[in-house]
Amino acid sequence: MSLQQYVENQPLLQVQNVSKRFGGLLAVAEVSFDLPQGQILGLIGPNGAGKTTLFNVITGVYTPTEGHVLFRGVDVSGWPPYNVVRLGLARTHQIVRPLNDLTVLENVMAGACYGYAQLPLREAREVALEVMEFLGLADRRDMLAGSLNVAQKKRLELARALASRPRLLLLDEVLAGLNPTEIAEMVEVVHKIREQGVTIFIIEHVMHALMNVSDRVIVLDYGRLIAEGTPDEIANNPQVIEAYLGDPKLAEKLLSGEEEDV
């Protein structure tokens, strides 16, 4: 096997025994999993389970207290975010972080200029326009990012991440705060992104949508990985139902999409 084949056969992302401690709080505890190329991996867990912290460890915002994060076979634990991103990673934030005083186009161009793609300005502009077209932001290109509504800001986050042409996309609750129509559109978008060969790791609270898009789901509770499996397996896993949802009947309701707000 050549080195290149070896690297390609490696999972795109390997999280090995990662812990993150803040003072006395163990936010992420000994979490290990692999994310193979081309999959959509869902991450669920109650509030405060450590999902966003795990994202922050993977992207380099936090250094893991213990363990290693391997991205494309490279140990990136402790790297600053701008170096991790240059290996082909992009993320969106749970609480949107638009560059308010820049236009929508400039926001997306910044993603294309500085992320994995590392494009010069002129090409970044073309890629940005393409991505904005894809996400339905094209007619807002000259608006200030700060003046967009929440749904549009979510799209902008996604556009900025996509414009960097990532190998791995981390989505942190892109559906939260959207209405059912917007959720359906966004789910459609996520499928299209995967068709382009992008691997996706997604945190989501909107259960029926997450179960619908994910190939595999992992569950965090109090920082620990308590389950891993296909959406069906997870939905029927008694430990998950107990830890995460409390009431098994509530789970059925959530999966059918009746109670979005719980």
Partner: peptide, 26 residues
């Protein structure tokens, strides 16, 4: 102001943490 580098600087001005995650070597 209209250069790639300038765009990176303005990203820092707007949100330094977000700029880092976007790949700007802050």
């Amino acid at each position: 102001k209209f250069s790639r580098f300038g765009l990176g600087l303005m990203a820092i001005r707007e949100d330094e943490d977000a700029a880092m995650v976007m790949g700007v070597r802050t």
